[in-house]
Simulated assay, not measured.
Amino acid sequence: MKISIVTETFLPSTDGVVTRLRASIDYLIDQGHEIQVIAPDLGVQSYRNIRFDGVQPRTFFLYKHRKFGMPTRQIKTYLEDFNPDLVHVVNPAFMGYSGIKYGKKLGVPLIASYHTHAPKYADHYKVPWAEPLLWWHFRRMHNQADLNLCTSQAILEELNEQNFYNVHLWKRGVDTERFNPELRDESMRERLTEGNPDKTLLLFVGRLAFEKEIDTLIPMLEEKQDAHLAIVGDGPYREQLEKNFSHLNNVTFTGFMHGEELATAYASSDAFMFPSTTETLGLVILEAMASGLPVVAAASGPTNEQVDDGATGLLYRSGEDGNLTETIARLEDKNLQQQMSKRAFSHSRAFGWHGPAKQLLDIYESALDVKQEQEEGQQAVQ
């Protein structure tokens, strides 16, 4: 099968979408399929001999810290030249509009997947009037696809409420070989705690953006001087975050980590922090669990699906009536912490990437079968 993937984000970017894509592409290639990736050209133009077609990235005036591929007729040329059997548009927003438009014109199965809960960012950026416009924009694109995918049951239900067409759940996964508690390393722990390894080491991993709600951890850290937060990642909000946390001596900013270094950082920590309530899933939650970490997460639909409160982690209320400080205090019960660590690790073992990647291929093949049946039906009528 020849598969065109039009995606708003790809290498060298580091996020959950790219992680999922790489795992899926690896599986598809290993199964003998031919892959084209159309993505913003950010300098990485090769991955496992796939065909890469780059789109010139540009800065979006409302989000100047990151470059995006914009709608372009060039995508039509790329698609027609590759002549795919199926088109998958990942997270359509900007250039994904062209992926939807020209992918549909090819007459092959068109699949779209929803990964970023952009309409919910409106409240965080204090533009609530924009939420219905964003829903309209994303619904208009996704409803041109034959089939839509999303990554959690809570988001699936919300998309159904917003009248998205034919939505299916795409299972979550994690690299169960890379992330492992056995990578725990005392020198890494010294580094992340800036020489205070006896403190409770809390870890955050992700893109540093306003909507990640990392600032909400400040009151807890002010009160819990026996805890230390390591923030792994980078992004447009890092400079402001460093200013906001500057009065604290129990916070470390490390910048990006990758590969074994990142896996070691996970394994060397005591608990994982997930303060965002706007995620469609949060693959880092499974990475933390696979590393033997209980997850302390702000309660929301997608996180409630992944974190079993008191078993694999702890859920807390965010906002003005939040209870994060009291929730973190529960980690002082070392027996509870160890039990949650073991259960989190055990839970993660069922979520390797093979399952979600195989599911995606099954969806592709089913879409092809449906399209063929439709064409045969039309020919019979004629």
Rank of each mutant, 00 (worst) to 15 (best):
L201K: 01
L201C: 14
L201F: 02
L202R: 15
L203N: 14
V205P: 06
R207K: 11
R207T: 12
A209R: 03
I214H: 02
L217P: 01
P219Q: 08
P219L: 10
M220K: 15
L221Y: 11
E222W: 15
E222T: 06
E222I: 08
K224H: 07
Q225Y: 02
Q225S: 13
Q225D: 02
L229A: 11
L229R: 02
L229D: 03
L229I: 00
I231Q: 08
I231K: 05
V232H: 03
G235D: 06
G235P: 04
Y237H: 15
R238H: 13
R238V: 08
R238D: 01
E239N: 12
F245H: 09
F245T: 10
S246V: 04
H247N: 00
L248W: 05
V251I: 13
V251T: 00
F253Y: 11
F253Q: 00
G255R: 09
M257L: 09
H258Y: 05
E260G: 07
E260K: 14
A267Y: 07
S268V: 06
S268Y: 01
D270K: 03
F272S: 11
M273R: 15
F274H: 15
P275I: 15
P275Q: 06
S276A: 04
T277D: 11
G282V: 02
G282N: 04
L283S: 05
V284T: 14
L286R: 13
S291R: 12
S291H: 01
G292P: 02
P294L: 02
P294K: 07
V296M: 10
V296I: 07
A297P: 01
A298S: 11
A299L: 13
G301W: 04
G301C: 14
N304T: 10
Q306P: 00
Q306S: 06
V307K: 07
D308R: 15
D309C: 15
